[in-house]
């Protein structure tokens, strides 16, 4: 078999494209978790984003409205979560699971009228450079703006957390909400904002799936990516740069197993389809062996409700 470097370039491009929704959702959830809130509703928020984006695109015809509408939908549904967990002090885990079930259900209901409708073309940037350099060009050029944003996001998130005052406050709230509150930081407000930001990013991740990656609506089209995004946050030990690496591993295996199926490798299809999940879990276990590192970087208050007694 002759290995064409352009073909390898294309494979890398498709790996990157499949990593985009994972990066977006994980980076959003990372901020939420860094503030001490465990939102297991990522899958639900993503699928709400997916149907909202797609539906708005068909109804309004405007891609801009569709993308921002999807983010807004993510914000709205995460507001429910924020209100329940922060104002009514419900349990994070139960509320997050409920949010996912709710999201999957309501998206299927709204989506009924949109099944089978083809999506629109999403504009791509730098199209003219696409063939300029072999191998590199398809990787670097000719992608949607969401794609570029996703690959910048881990670095922006890292900078935000490490170098800015607000990032420091987010980390402080996640470390010890009691101390933060005694320092005069409004813990509930910080957590609300972090939850809503997470919702917006999950909404965007969903919109990417239904508008750019596979421009159509299929029921349950997020297919467990929300759960993988959640796992990536832990796997990365709450480090955005490692999220990028993890998302590429998962995306890479997804794409490679497709190609292996196409080439006709004699491994049962079911096993190949399960491969990315299995390998990601194994990598997770291997990397999580360093319990010291994990515990040092885990937001100490993760998943715990904060009460202010007066």
């Amino acid at each position: 078999m002759i290995v064409d470097i352009n073909f390898i370039g294309l494979i890398i491009t498709s790996i990157m494209a499949s990593a985009v929704p994972l990066i977006l959702a994980s980076c959003g959830e990372l901020i939420t978790e860094r503030s001490g809130v465990l939102n297991l509703g990522v899958e639900g928020m993503m699928i709400i984003g997916a149907i909202s984006g797609f539906a708005l695109m068909i109804v309004t015809g405007s891609l801009v409205i569709a993308v921002f509408g999807a983010m807004l939908a993510g914000v709205l549904i995460s507001t429910i979560f924020a209100f329940l967990t922060q104002t009514l002090i419900t349990n994070h885990v139960a509320t997050g699971l409920a949010l996912t079930i709710f999201g999957i259900g309501i998206s299927a209901m709204i989506g009924k009228n949109f099944v089978g409708i083809p999506g629109k073309d999403f504009p791509i940037l730098f199209e003219s450079f696409k063939d300029a350099i072999p191998f590199l060009s398809p990787i670097l050029f000719g992608h949607s703006i969401v794609f570029y944003f996703a690959f910048a996001l881990p670095f922006l998130t890292n900078y935000f957390l490490k170098k800015t005052k607000i990032g420091l406050i987010v980390r402080a709230v996640g470390d010890s909400p009691d101390s933060a509150s005694n320092q005069g930081i409004n813990v509930r407000l910080v957590r609300y904002l972090c939850i809503l930001y997470g919702g917006a990013m999950c909404g965007l991740a969903g919109a990417y799936l239904s508008m750019i990656y596979t421009p159509q609506w299929i029921e349950n089209m997020t297919g467990g990516r929300g759960w993988i995004a959640l796992a990536l946050v832990v796997f990365s030990t709450w480090n955005p740069i490692k999220i990028l690496v993890g998302a590429m591993i998962f995306g890479g295996l997804t794409i490679i197993q497709f190609h292996m199926q196409a080439v006709g490798v004699r491994i049962p299809v079911q096993f190949l389809t399960a491969l990315p999940y299995i390998v990601t879990i194994i990598v997770l276990v291997v990397i999580s062996r360093d319990s010291r590192k994990i515990r040092l970087s885990t937001p100490s208050s993760l998943g715990k409700s904060f009460y202010k007694d007066n």
Binding site: L168, R171, A172, D175, S176, S179, N182, Q183
Partner: peptide
């Protein structure tokens, strides 16, 4: 019971407010 952020550095603890 100290009002410090254990995982932040000493300087980060001091600059936050």
């Amino acid at each position: 019971h100290f009002n410090l952020f254990e995982t932040l550095s000493v300087f980060e603890n001091l600059i936050i407010d």
